[in-house]
Design a protein around this nucleic acid. Structure first.
Length: 523
RNA sequence: GGGCCGAUAGCUCAGUCGGUAGAGCAACGGACUUUUAAUCCGUGGGUCGACGGUUCGACUCCGUCUCGGCUCACCA
């Protein structure tokens, strides 16, 4: 019988008492005229003291969640929070006086309202003796009874598991959390505007794909009953976006979710948000220029300046960003002799000298990139473009005109993380088919992340794709960077976690409701 | 997957070298008509993550498990 806490039972009883008195504890007949911040902005300079309120003063109709109540018997301050609340102004207080509100209404307020409830209040503004802007309440209404009590008003929610599982409670209490997601929303809308201003069209391509291509990752697999076939959640939209470029759309972008069935960490969530954009008649060099402008303007849009603080470092988005080839990075950043970076034996020797274990079966291309990731990546704090990747590990990239062993590709690193990957697109269908076949061979040899062949994509290229450059940017990582968060879970509303085990019959009785938990023999 | 750490009231935490637990906030009753984490007096609230073992006795010790955090590995 302890399924419902004492605190909740008391609140349920208060709602029942309201119903018995003909009142609705979940009313929806209150209209708001101003957010709490609107009130502050429109009245702050002019608010009179309580005894000087003009008869005809503006009446504000506000609503919000009750964060705290200071009850002084025949008067009370109620502190409200709404969508306009910020860390600078976390609550706005309204003042209830028994003589003004009326005895019945005031007694109802005291009998009905708890912290956490959502209420509406109407009245003129005034300034208290201590100088705080407040509303003198002439009408007060409980709009939504909260059955569950709020977390500690001083400490808020701190347990990360609870914060992520009950993001709603986290957002009620944590104005800094709201701010993170406001910045994230701003990032997304800025990028959309930025690309649309340059003639890009936003498109949506399949998330359920018969061939999960466009990247090297393990996909989630599902089953389509009607067609009787397996389908995969996309690991990237790349191949579909390029089909649209073949179709003549020339500048397209998609900003949406990808899914990868791989490990979770502070930097990886099974579903994550990726921007991909493609521009015909452009090269990866054009995208380098575009990316510098996009990111520095984005940073200014978010912070008002082109720098951001991350993990104790000031990251500057002032163009031009640093730029190295993979080999140059190994020389300049890891201190490997240039002569060693040109051969597999040289790379192996350099790795051995530094105590880095490399796969003895790995090719020159794989070893080169592996060593870059091991020795250089984490050191790239300021935005840095790394170019000239090996063709072998870039099956969708255009080979360099000067040297077909390399491709016209860059990755962008900031604060030690890869945030973008871009290249001039391979648009020769014969070459693309050959590269796919190499990948098929690699898969047969045990590389389960080798790219699967996509025959329809080859057919699309056979119609002719204009010379094109394309880029992917990890939006979650950009959001981490611009909000100073060290975990991807802090910038995703509902990060994936193992499902909670609920006891059957949670809130109110319903004894034989749940029990649907599989009673399996531990896996 | 490995290592380390954690799980005690609604929330934030303390605690018991083994004798079934405390504080603050929240709640409940009372006082208080300008408070600012309001204040003052009083009260209730816990299967101490789960299961097993040792023991006269386990919240505490041991084992297993669950969930989470950090970290390493993996992962463009």
């Amino acid at each position: 019988m302890e399924e419902t806490s004492e605190l909740m039972r008391i609140r349920l009883a208060k709602a029942e008492a309201m119903r018995a008195a003909g009142q609705n504890p979940f009313a929806n007949d209150f209209r708001v005229s101003h957010t709490l911040e609107d009130v502050r902005l429109s009245a702050d300079a002019t608010a009179p003291d309580m005894n000087s309120i003009d008869e005809g003063a503006v009446r504000y109709r506000v609503a919000g969640r009750v964060l705290a109540v200071n009850d002084m018997g025949k008067a009370a301050f109620v502190r409200l929070r709404d969508r306009s609340s910020t860390e600078a102004n976390p609550v706005f207080q309204v003042y209830l006086k028994k003589d003004l509100l009326g005895e019945d209404a005031y007694d109802q307020f005291k009998a009905q309202v708890d912290q956490g409830d959502i209420v509406g209040a109407v009245g003129p503004v005034f300034r208290t003796r201590r100088g705080e802007l407040s509303i003198l309440v002439e009408r007060f209404q409980l709009l939504t009874k909260a059955y569950r009590p709020l977390p500690d008003k001083w400490h808020g929610l701190t347990d990360k598991e609870t914060r992520f599982r009950q993001r709603y409670a986290d957002l009620i209490m944590g104005l800094d959390v709201r701010e993170v997601f406001r910045i994230r929303a701003k990032i997304v809308s800025f990028i959309r505007r930025f690309l649309e201003d340059r003639g890009y069209m936003e498109v949506e391509t399949p998330m359920l794909q018969a061939v999960a291509g466009g990247a090297a990752a393990r996909p989630f697999e599902t089953w389509h009953n009607a067609l009787g076939i397996p389908l995969y959640l996309r690991i990237a939209p790349e191949l579909y976006l390029k089909r649209l470029v073949v179709g003549g759309l020339e500048r397209v972008y998609e900003l949406n979710r990808n899914f990868r069935n791989e490990g979770m960490s502070q930097k990886h969530n099974p579903e994550f948000t990726m921007l991909e954009f493609y521009q015909a008649y452009a090269t990866y060099e054009d995208l380098i220029a575009l990316t510098q402008v996009m990111l520095s303007e984005l940073c200014v849009a978010v912070h008002g300046r082109d720098t951001t603080e991350y993990a104790g470092h000031t990251i500057s988005f002032a163009a031009p960003f640093a730029r190295y080839t993979v080999r140059e990075a190994l020389t300049t950043i890891a201190g490997i002799d240039e002569s060693q970076t040109g051969t597999l034996d040289g790379l192996r020797a350099a790795a051995a000298e530094r105590g880095v274990h490399v796969d003895p079966k790995a090719s020159y291309a794989k070893t080169l990139v592996f060593l870059f990731e091991e020795l250089c990546e984490k050191k790239l704090l300021q935005p840095t473009f790394i170019t000239r990747y090996p063709a072998e590990i870039s099956p969708l990239s255009r080979k360099s005109d000067e040297d077909p062993e390399w491709v016209d590709r860059f990755e962008l690193f900031i604060a030690g993380n890869e945030v973008a990957n871009a290249f001039s697109e391979l648009n020769d269908p014969v070459d693309q088919k050959a590269r796919f076949e190499d990948q098929v061979a690699a898969r047969a040899a045990g590389d389960d992340e080798a790219h699967p062949i996509d025959h329809d994509y080859i057919r699309a290229l056979e119609y002719g794709m204009p010379p094109t450059a394309g880029q992917g940017i990890g939006i979650d990582r950009i959001a981490m960077l611009l909000t100073g968060r060290d975990s991807i879970r802090e910038v995703i509303f509902f990060p994936h976690m193992r499902p909670e085990q609920f006891q059957s019959g949670t809130a109110d009785g319903a004894p034989d409701s749940g029990t649907s938990g599989p009673t399996d023999d531990q896996g």
